[in-house]
């Protein structure tokens, strides 16, 4: 631990990066953007470690920015595109506050790189709104007071939506495990269970 905290190697040059598997780059690109290497007879684009152009499709709109490969989908949404519904809470894929839909599946956006989320439609809690209308799941969260401080709420709303899409009439056991990937600290679970039973009956 101490050596980690005290170690001084902050960055590695591009040259070192491209050398590591013994493959020399044909030329060093001067502008950010992928270098192309010939590997096993075919071109492979190598991105980074510097910023590289990234385009995400979020809530039906395209967003582009220069972003390092190490930036997560969550951080790109929040910091580059100011889409702050998904929250950074555990940042280790353990709490659910950053849940978004990617290819219609609920995922932890803190555990996906922005660069690998390209070409996959992303829907955040903001994207569930139908114009100014709350999505039925969002409205049910309000009605059942399934939120207090509200910081887990955006992730919980998206996870609940994905869960109900898959299990329109869930059993309590399915609810317990199916919404087990999201944690709340004000502890609004009772309200969220009411949301699910209200919408699960319809």
């Amino acid at each position: 631990m101490s050596d980690r905290e005290q170690e001084g190697s902050a960055g590695v040059s591009r040259r070192e990066f491209l050398k590591i598997s013994g493959i020399a780059a044909a030329s060093m690109p001067l502008i950010a953007g992928p270098a192309v290497l010939k590997v096993a007879g075919e071109d492979v684009a190598i991105h980074g470690p510097d910023k590289t152009p990234i385009t995400l499709n979020v809530n039906g709109k395209n967003y582009s920015a220069q972003i390092e490969p190490r930036v997560t989908l969550l951080d790109a949404l929040r910091q580059d595109f100011e889409i702050t519904g998904p929250k950074r809470v555990c940042d280790r894929g353990a709490c659910g506050a950053c849940t978004v839909l990617m290819d219609s599946k609920a995922v932890y956006s803190c555990s996906v790189l922005a660069i690998e989320a390209q070409d996959k439609p992303i829907v955040t809690v903001e994207g569930l709104m139908q114009g100014e209308q709350l999505h039925p799941v969002q409205a049910a969260f309000v009605e059942n007071d399934a939120q207090q401080c509200g910081f887990c709420t955006p992730g919980f709303v998206v996870a609940t939506k994905a869960f109900l899409d898959k299990h329109p009439h869930p059993t309590p056991e399915q609810v317990h495990r199916g919404l087990g990937g999201n944690f709340c600290r004000c502890e609004t679970y009772d309200g969220i269970r009411k949301v699910v039973s209200q919408l699960g009956k319809a």
């Binding site: 903001e126 709104m129 309000v142 509200g150």
Partner: peptide
């Protein structure tokens, strides 16, 4: 509630 549940 609506602000919070919509992420706004």
């Amino acid at each position: 509630g609506p602000l919070k549940s919509s992420g706004r």
